[in-house]
Computed example of a mutant assay.
Amino acid sequence: MLRTINYEKAGHISENKNTQLRKLDSLIKRETPQPVASDPPVLVYNFSNTPLDDNTPSILSKGFNFSITPRSVPIEIIITQTESAIAHLPENLAEAARQDFATTLRRAKVPKSNVTRAERQSLKNLYNNPDIVVLQADKCNATVVLKTTDYIDKLTTLLDSPEYQITARDTTVYLEQKTKALINNSNISTERMKPLIPREKSSRTPRLNGLSKIHKQNITLRPIDKYYKQVKGAPMGSPLSPVLANLYMEDVDNVFVIWPHGSENLHAFLNHINFLHPNLKFIMEVENNNSLPLLDVLITKSNNSFSHTVYRKPTHTNRYLIAKSHHHPAQLNSVLNSLIHRFIRLADNHNRSRKLY
């Protein structure tokens, strides 16, 4: 109601127009909730001893999925990808597609740059600096700058564990041939067998790199693989690993439990299951202020019931694909659509009615 009273009408409420206007301003300010001030999320962590100028955090904060506009139209790449896409078409349709693409390429213009010249130079300086390594943080979409020596030391520490053994040679071709032989000697039908057989020398040897886990103490690294043989556990990132883990563990990766037997018995139970197998260790998180996160959901207990909404880690950066990124508009729009869909699915009716900051 207060907002419907415009300043013109307020001037006729009393002879003292200025007094009424001041009252109206005061009421509107009290009605309108003021935004809560909060510290901006940290997008770039510099753990090296190399100082970063102002332009370097600016370009790094855009994220690893940010695409820089090209300085020229990549004609050769477009032609190559076009030929690959139309290879299955009849020749008359393929030729028509070629003509359409050729017309489009002749009209194509270089898009306006979405980064400054100084930011491009900062990227070049980072690329040419052998003393630092830039990588993505694990699970929080931040950028981490590490000393190269620290990065190598942390990875070496991971590889010194009993889970890995050094191999004398690259076994990729051998494993490829062995897999092919096992499939050929199986009882699988020919129709199902054909897409399973790897093409000769089509596999690539995994390379070792790490993601910085800034949401945990001591900035540990998560490995993604190298020229070592993993003798324990399942390789991280392999599509087969979750399947094998579920078969062995019966899907107990993340479990939400209502425990009615007291805190002491709960910790005793945790100790018990951690002694069942030497290579299986469980961790536990208990409720805090009647709330407990489970994956992307924050579950809150109140009045003998539970409510739920979207959960974000304390290190969440709110960094998504930037609108200025050189992506197709459909990809940019999908970011907003996915966030809305995620909120609708994960939040209950009570939390959906509240404004989510």
Rank of each mutant, 00 (worst) to 15 (best):
T82W: 07
P90F: 01
I188F: 00
V257R: 12
Q217G: 12
L221I: 11
A268F: 00
L266M: 11
S334N: 14
H12D: 07
P206W: 03
N254V: 11
K229M: 05
S14G: 02
F282P: 01
L339D: 01
R204W: 01
R30G: 01
D153M: 12
N185L: 04
L52S: 04
L211G: 00
Q34G: 04
F282S: 10
I132E: 00
S48M: 08
P223Q: 07
Y320H: 13
E76V: 09
I283F: 02
V145D: 02
N209E: 03
V255C: 08
N254H: 06
L27N: 11
T300W: 03
V144S: 02
A234P: 00
L270Y: 00
L2D: 02
F269R: 05
G237M: 12
T167E: 10
D153C: 10
E163S: 13
N318Y: 14
P70F: 03
H277A: 11
Q20M: 14
V36L: 13
H341W: 05
K124A: 08
V231T: 11
T156P: 00
R169A: 15
N289F: 10
D150H: 15
F66E: 03
K324V: 03
S122Y: 04
G11Y: 10
A118N: 13
I197Q: 05
I183V: 08
S353L: 13
S61G: 13
F343H: 14
K194S: 08
A87C: 09
L146V: 01
T190F: 01
L266H: 03
E31N: 14
L123Y: 02
K281C: 04
E119I: 11
N265Y: 01
E250K: 15
I28E: 10
N318W: 13
N55L: 06
F343W: 08
I13M: 14
I224M: 13
R352S: 04
E8F: 05
K147M: 06
D100W: 06
F101I: 15
S212D: 07
A168H: 08
I344H: 11
Q165D: 02
D225R: 15
P130G: 06
M193Q: 15
T148L: 10
G210D: 03
F66S: 05
R71S: 09
L175G: 08
R107F: 00
N209K: 11
K62M: 05
H12Q: 13
D39W: 05
E200H: 12
K213D: 14
N92C: 06
S307N: 15
P239A: 11
Q121Y: 03
N49M: 08
L21F: 02
A137S: 14
D153W: 05
D150T: 08
R30V: 03
